[in-house]
């Protein structure tokens, strides 16, 4: 296992009022993303625990693109990763942002 952590300044606050949301499952080639609205509006953080060791630079690239594109201000993402491909990671992160923007608790 490897732990990775990223913090990015962001342009704007993420939409919605929901406090938290979760998407995905931890399985081979899959991951879960828990997203919580716990940070100041101009920040976002991503904490990762992954079975695939040594892919820090790929994660960094995936997360850089994600933050640039979705501007998830105020959100903390916690990821348990079962060795998902980068495109699956991008998709789950985008799904998490969509889910926390929905109505509900």
């Amino acid at each position: 296992m490897e732990d990775l952590s990223f913090r990015h300044p962001v342009r704007s606050r993420a939409d919605g009022a929901r406090r938290s949301a979760i998407i995905g499952v931890v399985a081979s080639g899959n991951l879960e993303v828990l997203v919580e609205r716990v940070l100041p509006d101009a920040e976002c953080a991503i904490e990762i625990r992954t079975v695939a060791v040594g892919f820090g630079d790929v994660w960094s690239a995936v997360i850089g693109d994600f933050v640039e594109r979705y501007s998830p201000g105020g959100l903390k993402f916690s990821i348990n990763d079962g060795g998902a491909r980068p495109d699956t990671v991008s998709l789950r992160l985008a799904q998490a942002v969509r889910l926390i923007a929905e109505n509900g608790q």
Binding site: E32, R49, V51, S78, N80, D81
Partner: peptide, 16 residues
């Protein structure tokens, strides 16, 4: 985050 206390020992991923 009430995760399994055992999986870490086996270097396996947890689920929240």
């Amino acid at each position: 985050r009430e995760v399994s206390p055992h999986l870490k020992i086996f270097d396996l991923p947890e689920q929240f």
